[in-house]
Nucleic acid binder design. Structure first.
Length: 311
DNA sequence: AAATCCCACAACCGCGGATTT
DNA sequence: TAAATCCGCGGTTGTGGGATT
């Protein structure tokens, strides 16, 4: 059968039925034989993909990711990277494609938020382009494909942040963090916002990995990302933002003194507990570690959101 | 009302590893 | 053991519908 006989594009119900019958008869294998037997004019790859992503039983087709699923994906992506098939094994009814698409959408939302966080110029500009003017002169914010939040944030920060503040511990604690956008612009389900800070001994400030039991994950476990969920919606005003980040690159950050606990944590040592954090070269930057490294008092201006556990 | 943007989703492609011949 | 084939994975693109301008 020549390549010109190979059909591509959307599947029809009749094709789905043929594929279902094949799987019922032969099991989910021998995909190539479907075409060689003349059952369908689809490649074996295409048949397998259709089965795995759409026709397989117990799929959650058309069902949005729940907050719990989002949390799980976020955590697992941090642990496994872009191993979508691996991550999907933790999410019943979800395919690697589902997870991949979810993550991709989320990345785009985050990128957009980072972009719109760029300060507006003092002079209004006439332009049909909705891109913030400050960004227009910065090349390729969306250029490289970023595989993790950490990369995304690092890129954004290094581009947006003029620099010298980045590793100036004296300056960091002087910063007044500006207004915040409301939670409706968050790139994830509001369910993920957890004001409580629940100390996790497996988690340290610099992106240590949360060790998840394999292959079962307790979905009820606390996967909250208080730092990420609160820092990302921040809308940064021009002066504060640029002043803060000065002329140094994020990678230059050395020792920085910051409070360890989020503002919303009501622990007795909230404002007094200061630790010295040191970035070590051999510590991999994980998706949340970049944000985790921010000084905690920058969250002081964030209104606590209700815990999903209190709803 | 039209144009544009945003978003979610489906599907394809290229590659590499595993299996078969 | 090498070549051919199959299979699975991750990256990318295309598309349609809803929202926004």
């Amino acid at each position: 059968m020549s390549d010109s006989m190979i059909k591509k594009g959307p599947w029809k119900a009749e094709e789905d039925e043929v594929l279902r019958k094949h799987v019922k008869k032969c099991g989910p294998r021998d995909w190539s034989s479907i075409r060689s037997k003349g059952l369908l004019q689809r490649t074996g790859k295409s048949c397998r993909l259709r089965w795995v992503n759409k026709l397989r039983p117990n799929l959650k087709n058309g069902v949005k990711f729940s907050a719990e699923e989002e949390r799980t994906v976020i955590e697992l992506q941090e642990q496994f990277g872009n191993k979508w098939a691996t991550i999907a094994t933790y999410l019943p009814g979800r395919t690697d494609n589902d997870v991949k698409n979810f993550w991709s959408s989320r990345q785009k939302k985050l990128a957009r938020i980072m972009r719109t966080s760029v300060p507006q110029p003092s002079k209004p500009q006439k332009s049909n382009n909705r891109e913030p003017p400050a960004l227009q002169k910065l090349p390729s914010v969306e250029g490289p494909k970023l595989s993790s939040l950490a990369e995304e944030r690092s890129l954004s920060m290094s581009q947006y942040c003029p620099s010298s503040y980045m590793n100036n511990p004296d300056t960091i604690n002087m910063v007044q963090w500006p207004e915040l956008v409301n939670s409706t612009s968050l790139p994830f389900e509001p369910d993920l916002l957890q004001p409580e800070f629940i100390p996790n001994e497996k988690r340290t400030c610099f992106g240590s990995q949360i060790t998840l039991p394999f292959p079962q994950i307790p979905l009820q476990a606390d996967f909250g990302h208080p730092l990420e969920s609160q820092i990302l919606p921040m809308k940064l005003e021009e002066s504060d933002f640029l002043d803060f980040f000065g002329q140094l690159s994020a990678s230059d950050i050395g020792d920085v003194q910051v409070p360890l606990v989020p503002a919303s944590w009501s622990g007795p040592e909230k404002s007094s507990e200061i630790i010295t954090m040191k970035r070590e070269i051999d510590v991999p930057l994980t998706p949340d570690s970049f944000i985790d490294d921010f000084p905690m008092d920058m969250f002081d201006h964030i209104d606590p959101l209700p815990s999903p556990f209190n709803w």
